[in-house]
């Protein structure tokens, strides 16, 4: 009799896990919970950068390493990834479908705003509940509030925006451009990850024909 858990999985047998373990498990270290980064991916040159989800990571470099494989390992191409600490993003209220958040933004919001000098802010918009935020572009401003006002003057149009995310340029880690283009260049070769690569109708047809003959 061995004292180790016997598994059908050879990987697990190599770990020599005790066959019996107590029912108590030490509570997880609270610090195990890394902070949250929002991940944005641009799949193609002529498509907008879009929010894809989050990763938990200790630093933004690691957030990028994680984001690349979790959010850009599929598809035919990828031209860039941005990662942004969730706490660095300023969020507007959210409206009902069909309502435009810009209609609620007026000049007064800039009163009493904390001015930090002129910088670039990136603006993401949500077009419909249930969809993802996508990048509209950038504005120059002295504060988040001014950025909001400038965003209205720059991006408001007849298509309503329900919700805005605004981020200071310096808070974004951008992995994109010529320097990084080649890290995605084998994506089209990863056919084994694609449903298209598993056609077998011919095999079934042949099998059925043989069955009928027999």
């Amino acid at each position: 009799m061995s004292d180790f858990l016997k598994s059908l999985d050879p990987r697990i047998n190599r770990l020599s896990i005790p066959a019996e373990f107590g029912s108590s498990f030490p509570e997880k270290d609270e610090k195990d919970q890394f902070i949250t980064y929002e991940v944005f991916v641009q799949p193609k040159e002529n498509k907008a950068m879009q929010h894809e989800g989050i990763v938990h990571a200790p630093t933004e470099e690691m957030a990028f390493l994680f984001a690349k494989e979790q959010f850009s390992r599929r598809g035919m191409s990828c031209v860039g990834i941005w990662v942004i600490k969730t706490t660095a993003i300023q969020v507007s209220p959210i409206t009902e479908n069909g309502e435009d958040i810009y209609d609620y933004i007026n000049k007064e919001i800039m009163e009493g705003a904390e001015e930090n000098g002129l910088s670039t802010y990136q603006v993401f918009q949500l077009a419909k509940r249930g969809k993802q935020h996508s990048l509209s572009g950038s504005v120059e401003a002295n504060s988040f509030e001014e950025a909001l006002w400038n965003a209205k003057n720059t991006f408001a149009d007849d298509k309503p925006a329900l919700n805005l995310w605004i981020v200071k340029e310096e808070d974004i880690l951008k992995i994109e451009g010529d320097e990084f283009a080649d890290i995605w260049n084998t994506l089209p070769d990863k056919k084994y990850r694609d449903a298209m690569d598993y056609k077998a109708t011919e095999k079934i047809k042949k099998f059925k024909e043989e069955q009928q003959k027999a």
């Binding site: 890394f34 938990h56 994680f66 494989e69």
Partner: peptide, 11 residues
């Protein structure tokens, strides 16, 4: 050791 790294290392 953590979910995201599991994915990256597998890739």
């Amino acid at each position: 050791p953590l979910l995201e790294e599991d994915i990256a290392f597998s890739s």
